[in-house]
Structure formats: C-alpha cells, structure tokens
C-alpha cells in the first residue's frame, strides 16, 4: 500500500497519511474488510514515528472509515455509501477552495475564473 507523503507538503504528516488512506477508500482501492498494516508496521515502513501513524489511524477511526480490533489490527469499515458520497463532495469543495484562493492571490478576476470553470466543464464533463 503506497501512501504518498512528502516533506514539502505543508500539512502535518498524520494528516497526509489519513487523507492518503481516505483517498484510497474513495477511489475504491481499499474496500470494506481490507486489512491495513499495523500502526507500528506502517511507522517502520514509512520511517516515521509511531505516534504519527497512531494519530492518522485515530482520525480515520473518528470518521468511522476504519475500525481497530485490539490484537487483530485495523480494517476498512463497512462505511455508509451516502456518507462516503458526502465526504467526496467535501473533498471537491476543499479542492475548489484551493483553486479559488490561488486565483485570488494571483489577482485573477472572478469573471475569468468563472469562464475557465465553465469551459472546462463543457470540455471534460
């Protein structure tokens, strides 16, 4: 299981890991019941601290995307499809926000931004 983490990413490491796993769930690469590496294994594998991977898994547990059974390990939960869909929408909102912030920062006009958006929609979707 490859989880992309990068030192140049401003997000904290645990967030990169939890979002990396979340993305794999959203894309259907990880399915309900699939086993995840143990917290310690993953830390060793990524050469990062145990507390970091622990926190990442904790985040995913809070979001009910994984469950951890003591002594058995962590597994992808039987997540609610509707919940996943709304999570996905949240993620899209997040990404669009990023683009809008970038446009604002670089002085792109609202009108031009709208034009680009509709042009892409028309061409790609």
């Amino acid at each position: 299981m490859f989880i992309p983490i990068s030192n140049s990413d401003p997000r904290p490491l645990y967030e990169q890991i939890s979002e990396g796993i979340k993305n794999k769930i959203l894309k259907g690469e990880l399915l309900p019941g699939d086993a995840l590496p143990s917290i310690r294994q993953l830390a060793q594998d990524l050469k990062i601290s145990v507390i970091t991977t622990k926190r990442a898994y904790f985040e995913l547990e809070q979001q009910k995307l994984i469950i951890t059974r003591p002594g058995k390990g962590s597994f992808i939960a039987n997540y609610d499809v509707n919940e996943m869909a709304s999570l996905n929408l949240l993620e899209i909102e997040h990404q669009i926000k990023g683009v809008v912030a970038y446009a604002k920062r670089t002085g792109v006009l609202r009108k031009d931004l709208e034009d680009i958006f509709y042009k892409i929609l028309k061409e790609e979707y």
């Binding site: 310690r40 050469k47 145990v50």
Partner: peptide, 11 residues
C-alpha cells in the same frame, strides 16, 4: 534508525 524502528515493533 531502521534497527530502532524494528526494536519498538514490540510495544
């Protein structure tokens, strides 16, 4: 560092 990570696989 690898040895240390292996060492704490045992919690």
């Amino acid at each position: 560092l690898e040895i240390l990570m292996e060492f704490i696989q045992d919690e």
